[in-house]
Simulated scan of single mutants.
Amino acid sequence: MTNWLFMSTLAIILAMVYGWAFKVLPGERWQIICAIPVKKRADGSWQGLNLTYYGLFNAMALGAAVALVLVLTGASGVAPGVFAAVMATLLGCCLPASRIIARWVEKKPHTLSVGAASFVGIVAAPWLVLLMEAIAGRWMAIRFESMAVVAALMVGYALGEGIGRLACISYGCCYGRPIAATPPLVKRYLSWATFTYSGGTKKIAYAHQLEGQPIFAVQALTAVLYTTSALAGSLLFLHGRYAWAFFLCLLVTQGWRFVSEFLRADYRGDRKISVYQIMSLITIPYGLMIPLLFPFVGGRQPDLLAGLRQLWNPAMILFLQVLWIIMFVKTGLSEVTGSGLTFHVNRDRI
């Protein structure tokens, strides 16, 4: 009962957030949070550094994903130190990869890709967990269910990427095709699922001149599918079905990544099947073999309340805050847009 209550509450909160976000984020108002003056110009104005909602929603997505992983691993009896070590190491690999691989694929210096980061994470996570298991067992006499950690990471990833689609909506990237250019089935059954973007600094406007046109809302569909898989995967996890939770989130996220790129209009490389799609196809058979590395040991049933108590810990809260700040700074400082600022005194208020 507790598991269902927790997941139902989370689902209701996310549904309300998504309902608001899908309605307002395509608007021009929801791209730039603020501009910081950094250098004065000859004309007396200031050159501004833009902070974006793209960074804010990415930071929220990472915070939610890591918090969910913490709750799930805590519910399965994984020590907080093991959790923190795994997350810090994994993010240390994935965050640089999101830029390096995207630059290689798209031949652009100021870009990043969650698909690239997820590929590296899915490939590296099992081996990282095996390494942590060996270190923790040998040097600290700590034992934990390795498959539980891998499954929790996959479930958290699904939630994080689902919420992270809000960042793409606000920035106008990862956008779908004009609804008139979508396949017949999409036009027939999903013609109502559209965004109409406004604002010349949105990527969809300057990259493909699609401002003001009805665009298939592929980011919204991705957010709903991934979030639903994360919630269902969490329930499976909390009932001790670690491998099934892992399989569900793996197949939904990577399968949809392959399919959804055929519905997108943004540049993903010069091939008909992009490098990101190839990565997603590779991760599916690779992921299906992962449980073979972690034979199920059995033991205690996951305890959601224990996981929530682990989250309500000053050290873990600070850890989440640090990750939030790092992600916001890393992805929120816009390198593509600029601004000019002027200041004046309101004489009528002196």
Rank of each mutant, 00 (worst) to 15 (best):
N3L: 11
F6Q: 04
F6S: 08
M7Q: 08
S8D: 12
T9N: 14
I13G: 00
I13M: 03
M16K: 13
F22S: 07
L25R: 01
R29P: 02
Q31M: 12
V38E: 14
D43E: 07
S45K: 07
Q47C: 10
Q47M: 15
G48K: 08
L51N: 02
T52V: 06
L56S: 11
A59G: 07
G63R: 01
G63D: 04
A64P: 02
L70R: 00
A79C: 13
A84C: 14
A85P: 06
L91I: 09
C94F: 02
A97C: 12
S98W: 09
I101P: 01
I101N: 00
V105Q: 02
H110T: 12
H110Y: 11
S113T: 15
A116W: 06
V120R: 01
I122A: 10
L130V: 10
M132D: 12
M132P: 12
A134W: 14
A134E: 13
A134G: 13
A134Y: 15
I135A: 11
G137K: 04
M147I: 01
V150G: 02
A152I: 01
A152W: 00
L159I: 06
G160C: 04
S170A: 15
S170H: 14
A180V: 13
T182A: 14
P183R: 08
L185V: 15
V186N: 04
V186Q: 04
Y189R: 11
L190N: 03
Y197G: 06
Y197L: 08
T201D: 13
Y206W: 10
H208Y: 06
G212K: 09
Q213W: 07
Q213L: 03
A220V: 09
V224F: 10
V224D: 03
Y226I: 04
H239E: 09
R241C: 15
Y242Q: 03
A243F: 07
A245R: 02
C249Y: 00
L251T: 07
V252T: 08
Q254G: 14
R268M: 05
K272R: 10
S274F: 02
V275P: 01
Q277F: 00
I278M: 15
Y286P: 07
L288C: 15
M289D: 09
P291K: 09
F294S: 03
Q301I: 06
L305H: 15
I325Q: 09
I325M: 11
F328C: 05
S334W: 01
N346H: 13
R349W: 01
